[in-house]
Design a binder for these strands. Structure first.
Lengths: 341, 341
DNA sequence: CTGAAAGCGCTTACAG
DNA sequence: CTGAAAGCGCTTACAG
């Protein structure tokens, strides 16, 4: 049915090994022979069976990528960056989105760990962290990225310095003279919060636990609720740090509703520098995280391990975030300075 | 190195065919034997080599999906929906994002058309439309979806009734009494514009060509520019239809800047009902398109073709859009009615 | 530079 | 219900 290497060989009057040689280029072939083979390939519209090649070579030219979702500007950029690098290197992308469903993630991981990928990149610690032991017997390199919680020692990690991201947000607000601040945080963002706290600790200030308001869902609505709660708990607040831009958007809306003008009455700092946020009024001051650079480093490390057929260097690589000052932050309004307890 | 079926067989004291039989379940195996085999599998942590299985069966349990990008709420939902259906059916997803790069798309398509996928779903007509002939010799089913331009007869198409989407937007504005309207359109959205026009034609009204303003980029900035141009060209405008929500967002901003209040002085209708738009003030009236239902229909049709190993039914399936009325549209302000030339 | 042989790890009829 | 054989379509040493 499908035309095979053997068909090409017969047509060109050579054996299939010679056809293989002209295709792979591993072994030199006399130009005249090669030309005949190439002609036969064209005439028969022959295209090699990649599966057979994979079985023979033990390599699939496919890299698996796990992400929690693709419907977020963070992960969609990660996916595109990864795919770019793969495409440029002749690799295919097998995508698994785990969707906050650990059981699903486990199933997918199990279904993959038969030699159907040459390497695996796991972005995001949310769903897969408990199932990593499944990879114990894996014969392909694994790299972790976008990891915020403590990463297992076993695998190389390429991630963002989230602690520093929080710190940059905090330092900015502190330098603007803010002393009464709150944090709107997603449950998993403890490291960002910790960095934020460190920035204030330098001045002997403490961001109290009850100044951290958790937004269960990373949505504007969640940010709105958290910001409303924060402002209700401490009307004297002069600034808030949202650990996710989308929460900051909700905070802007809450300020509007409560009649507090941003940035004069309330400064707002976000985190991520997502594209969606370009629209916000006022333009959001935020901590930009180099997600594309992170993704690139991660796949490149993975690919290097594949081609060298060695384990990737077991290191923790932290990409540096950057503060982007726009219009949602300003100096703290003058009023009696009160350090929080 | 890797443990193989043969290893399991030896350990269980049977031949590898028996191991294969207990794994595939195709041939009944005596319970006692099966138990021994299963024990051996567990002890050796054996996991079958999918590549070898693929070569033997001629099936890869992998479906290829082409999308222009993953960084849009439209396509990211399509990808997730497709992956859901695949996962539920034991298939893997090979993702290719074409990124408005026809040459890249061509390369990816060529690299795939060797038996490495069981089926191919192509979402979006932007990049691949010129390269479809490459698929001429493909031995796997192909389905097209999210197709707005004329689709090739050769392949089944599952898409949105974009003409009707435009029509619904137009009918809504017409019923609200709007007569001087403009369209803000992405270059490829001619079908939506055509449907919009049809709604007005029913009343003998014409939406002139110069009332259609093209936004080259699907960004709020693009919508802002197009809306500004439209309002400059005809200050008497009472409504605009944006063929993409993100353009509508820009139009809202333009109205704000120009001091026209929405919906009292200007009605705005969007298209897509994207999640990003939930934030807009006023809440955007828009045409919702059933992208998930579309994606589901498309993969399911594809999978049916794979399992039946027949070509999918060559049909054009159009999913129905729906108008969602929110706060950005209102009755046209009273003023002398002038039908556009 | 070209050809004959073995093998990658499975599955699939086909005998027993 | 279990085993022996052939084959899926390539690649990889190894002779010539």
């Amino acid at each position: 049915m499908a035309t095979t290497m053997q068909d090409v060989a017969e047509r060109a009057g050579v054996t299939k090994q010679t056809v293989s040689n002209v295709i792979t280029g591993r072994v030199p072939v006399r130009p005249a022979t090669a030309a005949r083979v190439r002609a036969a390939i064209d005439e028969l519209a022959y295209t090699p069976n990649l599966v057979a090649r994979s079985l023979a070579t033990g390599t699939t030219k496919t890299v698996g990528l796990f992400v929690p979702t693709v419907a977020s500007s963070f992960y969609s950029e990660v996916v595109e960056e990864v795919e770019d690098v793969l495409e440029r290197n002749g690799y295919h992308l097998l995508l698994c989105t785990t969707r906050l469903d650990g059981e699903r993630a486990r199933r997918q991981l199990a279904g993959l760990s038969s030699r159907s990928v040459d390497a695996l990149l796991i972005a995001g610690d949310r769903d897969l962290i408990d199932h990593l032991p499944l990879l114990a017997g894996a014969r392909f390199p694994v790299v972790l990225c976008a990891w915020e919680t403590e990463a297992p020692d076993r695998y190389p990690v390429v991630t963002i310095d989230y602690e520093r991201a929080g710190f940059l947000a905090g330092r900015h607000l502190r330098e603007l003279g803010h002393r009464r601040v709150a944090v709107l945080a997603s449950p998993a963002h403890t490291v960002r919060v910790q960095g934020f706290r460190r920035a204030f600790a330098a001045d002997g200030l403490t961001v109290a636990d009850d100044a951290v308001h958790i937004a269960p869902e990373p949505t504007p609505e969640g940010g709105f609720a958290a910001a409303s709660a924060a402002l209700a708990a401490d009307p004297g607040l002069t600034a808030v740090f949202a650990t996710h831009d989308v929460l900051a958007l909700g905070a802007l809306e809450a300020a509007r509703v409560l009649g507090r003008s941003v940035p004069d009455d309330l400064s707002v700092v976000g985190h991520d520098d997502n594209a969606e946020v370009r629209l916000s009024r006022p333009a959001l001051t935020t901590v930009s995280i180099p997600k594309r650079a992170m993704a690139r480093q991660a796949v490149e490390q993975l690919l290097r391990a594949v081609t060298a057929s060695t384990a990737p260097a077991n290191s923790l690589q932290l990409l540096r975030p950057e503060l982007i000052v726009r219009d949602s932050t300003a100096a703290a309004p003058h009023r009696p300075v009160t350090a929080e307890a």
